[in-house]
Amino acid sequence: MIYAENVLICIAVPLTIALMFLRGSNRRLILSFIAGMGACLIAAYIVGFLMQASGMNSEDTSIFLSPIIEEIMKFLPLMFYLMLFEPGDTELLQAAVGIGAGFATFENCCYILSNGAKSLPYVLIRGSVVGVMHLVTMVALAFGLHLLKRYKVFTISGIIGALSLAMTFHATYNLLVSEPGFPTYVGYALPLLTALHLYSKTRKYLVKE
């Protein structure tokens, strides 16, 4: 039994102190990283509550409910940043990456601390795949929002559409990894391949910027 809040404090406090010595994009990245960890903790509270309220078992909860709640919780700080500060495309992408990385880091920490590390390869696979999955959904979401802004159709329907895309991607991953064997490997490959594809796209995009 671990207390997720303690883990959050242990990671967030040094980062918060580090903020005093940082400026510009570094500060933005660290701030969004902390926001991502906070979003993960709140998502865990909500998922836990919904699991109790709906009477679902933990596997069904992780397949059906977690993707929706987690994606909404990651989306909210990004949307807050977008609405309040009207950032440029690079800044938006940076914030999305920070939130995704923070979320994945905190989730991995809590998971490994409460379930134990079976072996080093397992920790490496779990760490990289979950990390990549949360990053991929956030980068895709940032791209979606960038597209909506570029074509001047930053409407509710477009925003919800982009968010739903991230949710379904996450849900597909969770469904695949819930079944041992071949589906799990497909599940692991899904975010990794998408990340490689998105990497090639973002590189071109950042070079253009």
């Binding site: 059906f64 993707p67 739903s164 949710m167 469904l175």
Partner: peptide, 10 residues
């Protein structure tokens, strides 16, 4: 809870 319906809505 139909997750595929979320994608359909999207």
């Amino acid at each position: 809870f139909a997750v595929d319906e979320i994608a359909e809505s999207a």
